[in-house]
């Protein structure tokens, strides 16, 4: 399997497709309504901020997009943190909820709703592991 370079347009597109192809994601997110912005801060080998829009609605990924510099989006959820910590999530050193609880990641949005969808958050990460990523 060809590795896809992390944070490239191709990788962001593959991410969205992988969420929809993951049979365990949909049932865990049937009641989820709320797009997400991933705000990846420079750290380690990443020297600039990267923002990724992920459309999520009732168990479907409605689209993913690498945001251009200066492009504004209004999403009810924003997950932010240093690049290295996102990589650690992908390596399953900790899950996204643990990341937020331990301060490695930050999340804004309706937290009560999020707590009803812990499994969905986990399956989004599992989706990322269904294709090979070339890290920076």
């Amino acid at each position: 399997m060809t590795k896809i370079k992390i944070l490239s347009e191709e990788w962001v597109e593959a991410f969205g497709k992988a969420i929809n192809a993951n049979p365990n994601y949909k049932p865990s997110a049937l009641t989820w309504e709320g797009d997400m912005l991933l705000l990846i801060e420079p750290s380690g080998k990443l020297d600039h901020e990267v923002r990724i829009f992920i459309g999520l609605y009732h168990g479907e990924c409605t689209g993913t997009r690498l945001l251009k510099e200066g492009e504004e989006v209004d999403t009810p959820y924003i997950l932010s943190g240093p690049y290295d910590n996102f990589v650690r999530v992908m390596n399953k050193e900790f899950d996204p909820i643990q990341g937020v609880m331990s301060g490695k990641l930050k999340l804004s949005g309706d937290m009560a709703k999020l707590m009803r969808h812990v499994q969905a958050a986990k399956e989004i990460v599992n989706s990322l592991l269904t294709f090979e990523t070339e890290f920076l």
Partner: peptide, 16 residues
């Protein structure tokens, strides 16, 4: 089960 926060802690993926 899907509305229960604990299910996210199982080490295997689950589905209906």
């Amino acid at each position: 089960c899907y509305e229960d926060a604990t299910i996210g802690m199982v080490p295997r993926s689950v589905n209906p």
